[in-house]
């Protein structure tokens, strides 16, 4: 059975070796769509982490009860329920973030990362391993989104987490907070990430 070392590796693989954004290219729509600032990226990452964790827990608990043929629709309903919870909580308590993320909150449902982990991991492993897997993948996603959001905010707005470090009238690369900047920034981040992981490997 799995020991602590396995759990540690299971956790780390989501952050580095199988990073959902840089390596597996899962969940690209929210990655590109909401990362115009570090705070938005972090918010989206945490919302996704919560849904991923809860859906992995439930899927791993009910995996023996669900007939194989209807498992995908069942997984989708589980995910959609948690997304609805996130949507309502954000609207009630963090309306600012709710406005900013907009349509990408209901779209967490179709984030291939979540269904992918439910199908390929939680439906085959025990509860503890599924929780560790969800945490690893979720944290990897949070890191990627926050890094991309921070890079775009620094270049595009001269600030980080709303803290401005250039003078008000300084000109910045506005391109990076516009849509094309998302693609370009992610392209270069992916190059850097590949370079870094190749060195350690």
């Amino acid at each position: 059975m799995a020991n602590t070392l396995d759990h540690k590796q299971n956790f780390l693989k989501g952050i580095i070796k199988e990073n959902p954004v840089f390596v597996m290219l899962l969940g690209m729509c929210p990655t590109l769509g909401v990362t115009s600032s570090a705070f938005n990226g972090l918010g989206m990452g945490v919302a996704t982490l919560f849904v991923l964790l809860m859906s992995n827990i439930v899927v791993s608990l009910i995996k023996t009860q669900v007939p194989n043929k209807v498992r995908i629709p069942a997984f989708i309903i589980i995910i959609a329920s948690f997304v609805t919870i996130v949507e309502m909580v954000l609207e009630a308590f963090i309306p600012f973030l709710y406005e900013q993320l907009g349509i990408f909150i209901p779209l967490i449902v179709v984030n291939c990362l979540i269904l992918g982990r439910a199908e390929s991991f939680a439906s085959k492993n025990n509860l503890l391993a599924s929780i560790v897997d969800a945490l690893g993948m979720g944290v990897g996603f949070v890191i990627a989104l926050t890094a991309l959001g921070a890079a775009r905010e620094i270049l595009g707005n001269g600030s980080i987490f709303e803290f401005k470090f250039v003078s008000e009238d300084a000109s910045t690369f506005i391109l990076f907070i516009l849509p094309p900047g998302a693609f370009i920034a992610l392209a270069y981040l992916a190059v850097v990430f590949n370079k870094m992981t190749q060195k350690t490997a």
């Binding site: 290219l25 094309p180 693609f183 370009i184 392209a187 992916a190 190059v191 590949n194």
Partner: peptide, 17 residues
């Protein structure tokens, strides 16, 4: 280093531009 994903993303960025 640019092969594969990064170059595709760059092309998408230029299209978006």
């Amino acid at each position: 280093g640019m092969k594969g994903v990064p170059i595709n993303l760059l092309v998408a960025g230029l299209l978006s531009l």
